[in-house]
């Protein structure tokens, strides 16, 4: 595991990208997003309530995602978040930025990806 400091830095910078990309293909609610992150990163990355939701609300305030209460038949109502058109643009640019960043680091440090 990387050092806690690096961990936090990386998380901060890439957190938005993570969330935006997770709601790209379909709307999801908070717990779902948290679970997915944990699952797909195989436990490397974990969000807890205190860090996930403020982030969601911040993204929502910026208009990159939009949350709506949905009540499906027979369930409690949940807040689902989806990507907005503005958010789509931000996601695309952040993805490009991230790729460039990784390549640049790679060229400097000699780390290669298969």
């Amino acid at each position: 595991m990387a050092s806690p400091g690096l961990d936090r830095e990386l998380k901060k910078g890439s957190a938005e990208l993570l969330i935006l990309s997770l709601v790209e293909d379909r709307p999801r609610h908070g717990y779902d997003i948290g679970q997915l992150i944990e699952l797909r990163s195989r436990g490397a990355l974990r969000f807890n309530v205190a860090s996930l939701y403020p982030l969601l609300y911040r993204l929502e305030k910026r208009g990159w995602i939009r949350g709506r209460w949905v009540e499906k038949a027979g369930q409690r109502r949940r807040r689902y978040y989806r990507l907005t058109p503005a958010g789509k643009k931000v996601l695309a640019s952040q993805r490009d930025g991230w790729l460039e960043f990784v390549e640049a680091i790679g060229r400097i440090t000699g780390i290669q990806y298969a």
Partner: peptide
């Protein structure tokens, strides 16, 4: 409840947003 712990974190973070 662990998720909530980082006691002032939630409050602090939310303060910046809400």
């Amino acid at each position: 409840l662990e998720e909530l712990n980082a006691p002032e974190l939630l409050g602090r973070e939310l303060k910046q947003v809400e």
